[in-house]
Design a protein around this nucleic acid. Structure first.
Lengths: 333, 333
DNA sequence: TTGTAAGCGTTATCAA
DNA sequence: TTGATAACGCTTACAA
């Protein structure tokens, strides 16, 4: 790989002049500029951003740390983040933490070494607090996405779990459901807790009690949904509807129900938070509170880059609204 | 951020000794080693991989360039690549080229500047040849994934388009279909061409002619599938089955058929290459030739890292077999 | 308008 | 076993 010095020599100028041409950072004689550019072309010269980063203390590298890229919510979010990062001249490193705080920490340390300019993170849970404090200590800008962390002051892009849950629960109740199970993710994740809160609120509003046997805490994975349903099926008095706190839980739940010969929505209605994107195109099946996942990515990158640029002052929080989409997985009883 | 020199000073050693402790690159007195490690801990020191990269000429950064992360085939592939990269101590930058050769080039140049150690790329098409030659000129190791490029000698991880197409077409024919449409991606993409070839071969084997009006060339996007179906629906003699060259085409096609009031598989059968992963868990609908997308990612990273390490000599090609999964989108007539 | 010198944080090399 | 020095490729600050 040729260096700025190779270019300089061939163009009969100093390295500084080449640097100025590359960055347009100062006036350069038109003649020399053309000559330099010609040589750069000829040498197929690409400036070493490693060296550049070393002196400038910026890498133009961002990181996106999510639990699992194969979750459509995060897939689309990643696409949004990548598009926006590219538009603004940044590249994106991505990592999957699998809802695991240890793995999350490993990544964060890797990223600290990489000297990324900033981090977008969907924290694995409240315990991520410590991990994020590390970033704060190191003054590495970050934005948390999708999941809030109590007591942590930082830039945030969140959904509205309460609103979405109200939409979903009111829908189920309007359809005549009274025994509604709630499949929760870990209670150490804000979205799980808020959706439980919303669930309780709506039931109360309609004079209904929470039946503890219908609230199952598991984790935001397909297997979590399957396990939760196995648990529910042991009840003598089955629920008529299941509200899953996220899409993976719902898919796992439906899969498990089918394996036990139960049909959705004939035997049980199933609804959840977060859409399935492509899946919904093919076969609009699941009733969901859909979140604008692409915008989550775009907005988060915007906040992050503002923060990096230093133009941001106070911490900002963006809340993106969910939208109830009624499809075939829920029915009147 | 503290530097190796800060650590050195506090531990009363030279920077070199710290470096040796970090990398385990040479014997260091046990006492000193402990002292240095303690200071590193205390300072929360993370070595600057920028500086490291500058002297070592390696960044431990890989890039994954695909057309669209929201395509389940690539989503899962990305997950496989990221897992394997992480396991081997590499980080992964990702980019979406949207089947666009210009965008692909932009990315590649960005990556050249970033001095990634290697690139995993699903080329946008045969014209990517030039883009990849640039990498070869620059001696930047790369592996092409999923799509072959005629005349290009390099490491490759490919599927078996002919085999998969034979499986699919034999299935349709066994079900009694004779008028089968082929929805092709761009003919400048190897997989499109090979699947067309397989389509022709199987028809011929059964004494059937290719009806040119049933072969529609479009692009590997949802909109491509929609447009292709609009085109087909103008025929007076409709096909009884559609074979879509990839999953996006199939989903787009089905969506469009539904909007015209046609039901799948009642009115038309639809089958395609590549599965829909999560979607298939929820609702096993589409009959497909599924490819082991996760392994595509894992294998590609392995080839790439062998190449980077210099342990690879001749170019290698890995072919991963497809598997026919018969579901409800195709039926006997 | 252009160039020189120093420095960014690390490691290879050679010397002690 | 440890350290001094130079170098990696670039940009900032200053000088010409």
């Amino acid at each position: 790989m040729s260096t700025i010095l190779d270019v300089a020599r061939l163009a009969n100028v100093s390295a500084m002049t080449v640097s100025r041409v590359i960055n347009g950072s100062a006036r350069v004689n038109e003649q020399t500029r053309l000559r330099v550019q010609e040589v750069m072309q000829q040498l197929q010269f690409y400036p070493n951003s490693n060296a550049r980063g070393l002196v400038l203390k910026e890498t133009r590298l961002l990181a996106l740390l999510i639990s699992d890229i194969t979750n459509p919510f995060f897939t689309t979010l990643a696409r949004g983040a990548e598009d926006e990062a590219k538009r603004l001249g940044y590249r994106l490193i991505f990592g999957n933490s699998d809802e695991n705080i240890g793995k999350e920490k490993e990544y964060l340390e890797m990223l600290l070494s990489t000297r990324v300019d900033g981090v977008l993170i969907a924290p694995s849970g409240d315990d991520s607090f410590e991990n994020l404090q590390l970033l704060q200590n190191k003054e590495l800008p970050f934005v948390i996405i999708d999941r809030d962390i109590p007591g942590l002051s930082c830039d945030k892009v969140l959904g509205d779990s309460l609103l979405g849950t109200h939409q979903i629960m009111e829908h189920l109740i309007a359809q005549g459901h009274r025994r509604i199970a709630y499949l929760s993710g870990s209670k150490h994740i804000s979205t799980s807790r808020l959706r439980l809160q919303g669930y309780t609120e709506v039931l109360a509003k309609h004079g209904l009690q929470v039946d503890p046997s219908l609230v199952v805490e598991t984790n935001y994975k397909l297997s979590g949904g399957q396990e939760a349903v196995q648990h529910l099926l042991q009840l003598t008095n089955l629920p008529t509807a299941i509200f899953a706190a996220n899409n993976f839980l719902a898919v796992g739940a439906i899969k498990e129900l089918r394996e036990h010969g139960l049909r959705v929505p004939d035997d049980l209605s199933v609804v959840c938070f977060d859409d399935l994107d492509l899946l919904s195109d093919l076969n609009p099946f699941l009733t969901v509170a859909a979140q604008p996942s692409y915008d989550f990515g775009v907005k988060a990158v915007e906040l992050l880059i503002d923060r990096i640029g230093g133009s941001a002052t106070d911490h900002r929080q963006i809340v993106l609204p969910p939208q109830l989409i009624i499809r075939r997985s829920s029915r009147s009883i």
